[in-house]
Design a protein around this nucleic acid. Structure first.
Length: 962
RNA sequence: GCGGGGGUGUCCGAGUGGUCAAAGGAGGCAGGCUUAGGACCUGCUGGCGUAGGCCUGCGCGGGUUCGAACCCCGCCCCCCGCACCA
């Protein structure tokens, strides 16, 4: 029985498309469900990670559709931003790495590749490839609502303009300055993707403390301005080039490099003269706090490339400073060369200002000694510095020498102190990079402070508060992700929402700026609701005025007036409004967890800013990141799997199900070919099994085992349903595929006669439970079973409490336990049984047992009380002695029994074990290949040579084997 | 460093107080089918045990509880994110 996935899948895809079952229009009579997947960025093909997240969306959509919801799953493509442009440029310049990736990984044919010098062509290419992949994997998308971003989709662009003008009007977009890593050659910020060197490096903010030097300042850079109270001297690099420059009207002495850096940081810098650091060595400067005169000493460790190239020395708390001083003390000749009396240096004593646990007054001195660092060129100086820094920052308390800050912890007082110092004019700030960053164009990057930047004011406390509320009101899957959202909402600060380059939508009020990529993708789900009508009625971008959008999305104005202004018929405007209000809010949005700190949080923020509360997102799902054979997927590692390729290799259903069984919640799924192969053969076996069930003939009487199967299937329906509802897609797939399968397997093993009606009933439910995961195969099976219509729109199986048969289930678990016990005895005794005797518990044991369970539901039962209770029954009273022996044994078992099981057993009541076992006799004989005899424990005619019958307990018949 | 997630049997992975030697899958073993099979079907799969039991066990160490993989305290280790970028 071989069949071709591609053939089946293609067949049903065409049928679905022909019947337009995934095209969703407003229907006031039906409840709606609007699910979305963040549109993928089109600088490359869709990969398997997209497939994972989107399959979760599709499973949910298909499930909801079967539940009778009018379900909309739209799709679109993100073109906004730099990378498409960058990639096209790299193709143009013939970047071999880029060309290789495009050819080998993305499978771009040679003749197409040439055209990739045009970024738009590239985006279109990947978009159409992507669309094909989405179709192939069987996502239930309404394609009438497809679009892409940027000004190349003028109506979308107009929508973004409306969004930003509205945000600005409401005060959520503001102007400001911001430091960025900047390439002076490209004249643009250099993101991580655009760097040859320095990945992950970002600007650090130094505090400059301005020490007086004659008519000038020596602005020393530091992260620890509190240490100014312990300054003992200054270090300049005698071999480095310094300048005297007028900086914002003051005379500063800084390294030559620093001067050019500062000129990019909104400071006016005019260099007066240049000189070697040696010139100032031996001179004195004044500390602005205590007005002490302190010496300037030579320090070759001072890097003129780092910040100002001016360093003040705090030997008590900075290991580098202490070791540098020690070096100088050991080299009196060097000092004399600079005209410094060695006694001056020897006379410098560390000044302690921070009290820190585990150290004395001079932590820097201690750690240098402890680590055995010998001079300032020892590479471990950095390690010592960061150890002391961390320790002092987190646990250090400032000493009385620090005046008003005394007694406070360093980390608590730091920002206050910086503000104070700025106020009195002794501090300034400067940005610099902690490590070298090199742009792709090979130019070394600097920090530039951009002015006139446009920001989304995510720092706004009231806005944050609304975002928190939106998170509180939404369902978050998994629940653990909720804390993550709250945390990230607090952590977000203002976001530069416009850029100078890249594809996108120009900022309407400020030419030369383009709305940045993460910022034009926050509320576009609203656009899905109307793009269909925009297309159908050929509405032009110019007609979509702000007032029109205000009406559609916010219900402002009246359609008759708007019709006149815009030329869009009033009826059509109303229809667009209806379409929006019908579909909105978003019922579920799903993405990988990496998008929580940015896209998903922005999505939440902007919804709260622009829409009334009833249109805030209803549910957000977050999932892990897909790895391939245990490794992170990446083009450079050569383990990049495109969605299209995987679907071609394994088929849509195998791919979908394998992905779904990979992980749920925030766990990272792992794609393994072995798993996919195993799922492939599973599904083929499923096809065969259903085929067998379909071919079963005749009729058969309902046995206990039939009731059992129908009953446990109810439980499966319930757990699959609950799992999908809460987006636990792995659990749902696992139960729907394997647990149901095992139930049926047990039935087939156990049933005397396979009942075609039972199996057909179960198979139909089974196929429907699997349909969201493997829709094509299920469609095939659905029809194989003789059903009309699509399984994709069939009714989701209903959990039917009336079909739950606790007695049948408990009876079956009795049989299973008995088999396990019997097998265990056979295993231990190593005997080949000829005869197996079972003795079932007597009626009084059952009655006592059930009574004990009943009692134990309320209290912890005790011997004395339960006996008193049982003895009220005159019939039981006659067996008082035996009962007391039995009760004392059963007591522990019942007290340890989970409530759930107690309830089940109580509900099942007394089982007719004798009948049950007799009915299972043939089955047990087949299983154990031995004669099975069943007796009541008190049967006087029983065969019981070892006298085991009295060991019988309810649910646990006594066993004798020979 | 900060924040989030996590460490379970040969492997992957459920499980958040008793039904747990621990779902399910993979792998392994055995049997069936078969000329044969890496195909398919069925069963078994921690150790010990001549009667349904016992022992060990869920990152490490301690504690709470009649009872802990699950709760509390301390420790170790791993993964992910940390901003102008999709």
């Amino acid at each position: 029985m071989s069949f071709d996935w591609r053939e089946i899948e293609e067949k049903w895809r065409k049928e679905w498309e022909k019947a337009k079952i995934f095209e969703a229009d407003p229907d006031p009579k039906r409840e709606k469900c609007f699910v979305t997947f963040p549109y993928p960025y089109m600088n490359g093909p869709l990969h398997l990670g997209h497939g994972f997240t989107a399959t979760r969306v599709d499973v949910y959509a298909r499930y909801k559709r079967m539940r009778g919801f009018n379900t909309l799953f739209p799709w679109a493509w993100h073109w906004t931003g730099e990378p498409i442009l960058g990639a096209a440029l790299r193709v143009k310049s013939g970047d071999p790495e880029m060309i290789r990736a495009l050819k080998e990984i993305d499978g771009v044919p040679e003749e197409e590749l040439k055209k990739f010098v045009d970024p738009i062509y590239m985006a279109r290419y990947y978009t159409s490839e992507g669309r094909e992949a989405v179709r192939k994997i069987g996502f239930s998308v309404d394609w009438r609502r497809e679009f892409h971003t940027t000004s190349l989709e003028p109506t979308y662009s107009r929508f973004i303009e409306w969004q930003y003008e509205t945000l600005r009007r409401k005060g959520y977009v503001v102007r400001g300055t911001h430091p960025v890593v900047w390439c002076p050659n490209c004249r643009s910020p250099t993101g991580d993707h655009d760097r040859l060197e320095g990945e992950g490096v970002s600007a650090e903010e130094y505090v400059l403390l301005k020490f007086q030097f004659n008519d000038a300042y020596l602005p020393a850079a530091t992260f620890r301005p509190e240490t100014i109270y312990g300054v003992t001297n200054m270090f300049l690099n005698p071999d480095a080039d310094y300048v005297e420059a007028v900086v914002d009207g003051e005379k500063w002495i800084i390294s030559r490099e620093a001067a050019s850096k500062l000129s990019e940081q909104l400071k006016s810098v005019k260099v007066l003269r240049e000189f070697k650091g040696a010139e100032l060595i031996g001179e004195y400067f004044v500390d602005p706090i205590s007005k002490r005169r302190l010496p300037i000493l030579p320090g070759w460790f001072v890097d003129p490339e780092s910040a100002t190239g001016v360093v003040y020395s705090v030997p008590a708390h900075a290991p580098a400073d202490w070791i540098a001083l020690k070096d100088l003390i050991n080299k009196p000749d060097v000092l004399r060369k600079f005209g410094i009396d060695p006694e001056v240096v020897r006379g410098i004593k560390p000044i302690s200002l921070i009290e820190v646990e585990g150290y004395g007054d001079y932590p820097a001195v201690e750690i240098i000694e402890k680590m055995g660092i010998k001079d300032q060129f020892d590479p471990r100086v950095d390690e010592a510095t960061s150890t002391i820094y961390r320790k002092e920052f987190h646990t250090g308390v400032l000493k009385p020498i620090t005046g008003k800050y005394a007694g406070k912890r360093v980390q608590d007082v730091k920002s206050e102190l910086i503000e104070d110092f700025k106020q009195v004019g002794i501090a300034d700030i400067m940005y610099d990079l902690p490590e070298k960053v090199v742009c792709r164009c090979t130019t070394r990057c600097i920090v530039k402070v951009l002015s006139d930047q446009w920001f989304l004011k995510y720092s706004d406390p009231e806005w944050k508060e609304m975002a928190h509320e939106a998170v509180d009101e939404a369902r978050i899957y998994p629940e653990e992700a909720r804390a993550y959202f709250h945390d990230k909402i607090d952590w977000l600060h203002d976001w530069a929402c416009a850029r100078r380059t890249g594809l996108g939508t120009p900022l309407p009020w400020s030419p030369g700026w383009i709305v940045e990529t993460l910022s034009d993708s926050t509320i576009y789900m609203a656009f899905y609701t109307i793009i269909k009508l925009i297309r159908q009625h050929n509405i032009k971008a110019e007609q979509l005025t702000n007032e029109v959008f205000d009406y559609i999305f916010l219900g402002m104005g009246n359609p008759e007036d708007l019709a006149e202004e815009s030329g869009i018929a009033a009826g059509l405007l109303k229809e667009m409004r209806r379409e929006f209000t019908y579909w909105y809010p978003v019922d579920l949005r799903v993405s990988a967890k990496e998008l929580v700190p940015n896209h998903l949080s922005f999505f939440i923020f902007q919804h709260t800013a622009l829409f009334p509360r009833e249109f805030w997102p209803r549910a957000i799902g977050v999932n892990g990141m897909l790895s391939i054979e245990g490794k992170k997927m990446s083009k450079s590692k050569g383990n990049f799997l495109t969605l299209s390729n995987v679907v071609d290799n394994f088929g849509a259903d195998v791919t979908r199900l394998t992905l779904m069984l990979g992980a749920e919640g925030m766990d990272d799924p792992d794609w393994r070919v072995e798993n996919a192969k195993s799922i492939d053969s599973r599904l083929r076996a499923l096809y065969r099994l259903i085929g067998e069930i379909v071919s079963l003939q005749g009729d058969s009487e309902m046995q206990n085992i039939d009731r059992w199967l129908i009953s446990v299937i109810q439980g499966r329906i319930k757990s699959v349903t609950e799992a999908i509802e809460t987006l636990r897609t792995r659990t749902a797939a696992e139960v729907a595929l394997f647990e149901v399968w095992n139930d049926i397997r047990w039935y087939l093993r156990r049933a005397k006669k396979r009942n075609p009606n039972t199996l057909r009933e179960v198979a139909e439910m089974w196929i429907r439970l699997l349909a969201p995961f493997t829709p094509h195969l299920c469609e095939e099976l659905w029809h194989l079973m003789g059903n009309e219509g699509f399984v994709s729109t069939a009714e989701w199986p209903k959990y039917d409490e009336g079909k739950v048969d606790v007695k049948a289930e408990e009876s079956e678990s009795l049989i299973r336990n008995l088999m396990a016990d019997t097998a265990s005895i056979i295993g231990v005794t190593k005997m080949t049984p000829k005869k197996i005797c079972y003795y079932v518990a007597s009626g009084w044991k059952w009655r006592s047992y059930l009574e004990m369970i009943r009692e134990s539901l309320e209290t912890k039962i005790e011997m004395r009380t339960i006996m008193r209770e049982l003895m009220k029954d005159p019939e039981l009273r006659r067996e008082a002695k035996k009962i007391s022996v039995f009760v004392s044994k059963a007591l522990q078992e019942i007290n340890a029994m989970p409530t759930d099981q107690k309830k089940r057993r109580l509900k099942a009541g007394e089982l007719d074990e004798e009948a049950l076992l007799k009915e299972a006799k043939r089955f047990l004989e087949k299983e154990f290949k031995a004669e099975i005899l069943v007796y009541k424990e008190e049967d006087p005619l029983r065969y019981d040579p070892k006298n085991r019958a009295n060991l019988a307990k309810p649910y646990r018949p006594a066993i004798y084997i020979e």
